[in-house]
């Protein structure tokens, strides 16, 4: 039984193919202006890598901002529900999911049965999203991936005014002018990011187990800072955290096939 999920996000588009309970393929591409095109492209790429064709897919569920524009899906589900489903599928004990994507951030709490009990998203502001880290990495002349690793080398992390991305840039520039080590800046940036997101997580009533999904979860600096802020361990997922939404969609697709 082969099922697929496709997540068209604002910055990246993801696809996951499931064969029963095994992930047999997944891909991530940069989103274009046309969600339908992005979806087709990522799906083709994933199918190709898995040696499959569209005809092999029994059912496909779409999610993400562009979900209504995906031509090949049988059903759409919101990304909040998909992230929750994907995370729980990987980690049945999960109760809190923190998803930090490119343009937004969500915190979701599940009840014991795995139903969404409460969720919250950040409100129209880049701080506390992947965009914030992107802007900051660019400012420091770093690759996004290095921002996380650099954190661990910091001795004296800066305290960053981080309620607003635009204003944070000004702060970082002040520090760059005073030759603050980049590691300290990176650690400060990751910590500021984690602090913003931790407010959301605590607003839904953060409970163990906690996991992080979305591209930002790959940043070890943010992950560790988040553990400090929440005073809770964050369970690492065994697959790329960026594909959890698409995975959740694939799980829904599989359930749909099972039911019918």
């Amino acid at each position: 039984m082969i099922a697929a999920g496709c997540d068209v996000g604002s910055l990246t588009t993801k696809a996951v193919i499931l064969n029963n309970t095994r992930i047999i393929g997944h891909s991530i591409i940069r989103s274009s202006f046309d969600p339908g095109k992005s979806a087709s492209e990522v799906m083709d790429k994933t199918l190709h890598a898995s040696g499959l064709t569209m005809g092999d897919i029994g059912f496909c569920v779409g999610t993400g901002y562009g979900r209504d524009r995906i031509p090949f899906v049988g059903k759409t589900v919101s990304e909040i529900t998909c992230h929750a489903r994907g995370a729980r599928w990987l980690l049945p004990s999960v109760r809190t999911i923190i998803d930090v994507g490119g343009q937004d951030c969500k915190a979701i709490r599940l009840d014991a049965q795995g139903n969404i009990a409460k969720f919250i998203t950040n409100d129209k502001c880049a701080s506390g999203t992947g965009r914030f880290l992107e802007v900051m990495a660019k400012l420091l002349g770093l690759e996004l991936e290095d921002l996380g690793k650099l954190s661990s080398q910091s001795r004296n992390p800066i305290t960053l005014a981080a309620t607003c991305t635009a204003w944070s840039q000004a702060e970082v520039i002040v520090h760059l002018h005073t030759n603050t080590p980049k590691a300290d800046l990176a650690a400060g940036i990751n910590d500021a990011m984690a602090a913003r997101v931790a407010i959301l997580a605590r607003s839904v009533g953060c409970e163990k187990d906690v996991c992080m999904t979305g591209g930002v979860a790959k940043n070890i600096g943010v992950l560790e800072a988040m553990e400090r802020h929440l005073d809770m361990p964050i369970r690492r997922l065994r697959v790329d955290p960026q594909i959890i939404g698409a995975l959740g969609a694939a799980v829904f697709a599989r359930e749909k096939m099972t039911l019918s």
Binding site: V77, S78, E79, I80, T81, I116
Partner: peptide, 26 residues
């Protein structure tokens, strides 16, 4: 479900929709 939004032209339709959909699913 709590929702904070801007007044005026619905520039945030995508974001609002995502949350409404998730609430409906809930």
């Amino acid at each position: 479900m709590r929702l904070e939004r801007e007044y005026g032209p619905l520039v945030e339709t995508g974001r609002i929709r995502m949350r409404i959909d998730a609430f409906m699913e809930r």
